[in-house]
């Protein structure tokens, strides 16, 4: 019993993790998809760069690292919270869960964390391995970048999860949520510099994107990883990242109150 209050969430996390480990088919499919995207992007960058160096010191070589790490990160940004919100609203379990001494969204978060642990073992390592063998071993720019990379990765995951939760709550009034979820997933990858780093976008566009939360999901940790930004710049952007976490957390909190209230007035 680590802590009485957390104990139930740890247990939920555990059973979700065990269950995720048994879904083999999904795992292979995901690894295959990610590998194809990864390899295609790598070829694209190789053809584009042809041993030239980009303005901010980015080489074809570091773009390979970027590509492999981006594929690896996309595994870590997998969330189930949107779908769980949808299901529990449809089945009405969101209402019955409320007569239990447990936070419904806490359950969803614990499940996502459990799933994440399984994903790291089952998907992340194979993808890193495939990337290392076929493209390049993705080495971090310097050892001193590790703490910053890890720190910003955590903030990235927070932003990603909060966005998913907010989106899931907002979408539960929409008709076809599945389509919306797909659109959101790909939009995030595009706007977050996962596929094309935003320094390739026109200045006006990248200025706008820098204000949105998306770039703080993929681009920032990846920039830290390949060393394509100065320390000053990284600090400044991590601060913005933190601000986004706080803003989204507040929005999430208000929205979840509203959704639960609505469920309780309308009847599950």
């Amino acid at each position: 019993m680590l802590n009485g209050r957390l104990d139930k969430y740890l247990y939920i996390c555990k059973i979700r993790m065990i269950r995720s480990f048994t879904y083999k088919f999904e795992v292979y499919g995901n690894i295959l998809m990610q590998s194809i995207i990864m390899i295609t992007t790598a070829f694209f960058w190789k053809a584009l760069f042809k041993n030239e160096t980009f303005e901010n010191g980015v080489t074809a070589d570091s773009m390979m690292t970027y590509t492999v790490m981006s594929a690896a990160l996309s595994v870590m940004f997998t969330t189930g919270v949107e779908r769980r919100i949808q299901q529990s609203v449809e089945k009405g379990s969101i209402a019955t869960d409320m007569m239990r001494p447990v936070n419904v969204f806490g359950i969803f978060l614990a499940e996502d964390i459990g799933n994440l642990i399984a994903l790291i073992v089952q998907n992340l390592f194979p993808i890193l391995l495939i990337g290392s063998l076929l493209i390049k071993v993705p080495v971090i720019v310097s050892l001193s970048a590790i703490p910053m990379f890890v720190g910003s990765l955590f903030l990235s995951m927070a932003i990603n999860w909060l966005l998913a939760a907010i989106f899931g709550m907002w979408a539960f009034t929409a008709i076809s949520m599945d389509a919306l979820f797909q659109v959101k997933k790909h939009l995030i990858r595009l706007l977050s510099g996962s596929i094309i780093p935003i320094w390739f976008f026109p200045a006006w566009l990248s200025d706008i994107l820098n204000l949105l939360p998306f770039v703080y999901i993929y681009q920032l940790p990846l920039d830290i990883y390949i060393g394509s930004a100065t320390n000053d710049e990284i600090c400044r952007r991590m601060l913005i990242q933190l601000v986004w976490v706080l803003v989204l957390a507040t929005l999430y909190y208000l929205l979840s109150k509203k959704v639960l209230k609505k469920v309780m007035v309308q009847g599950g």
Partner: peptide, 12 residues
């Protein structure tokens, strides 16, 4: 059912 739901705190 509506009454039961209100008695169990599922429905306001």
């Amino acid at each position: 059912s509506t009454t039961i739901k209100m008695m169990t705190g599922i429905l306001t």
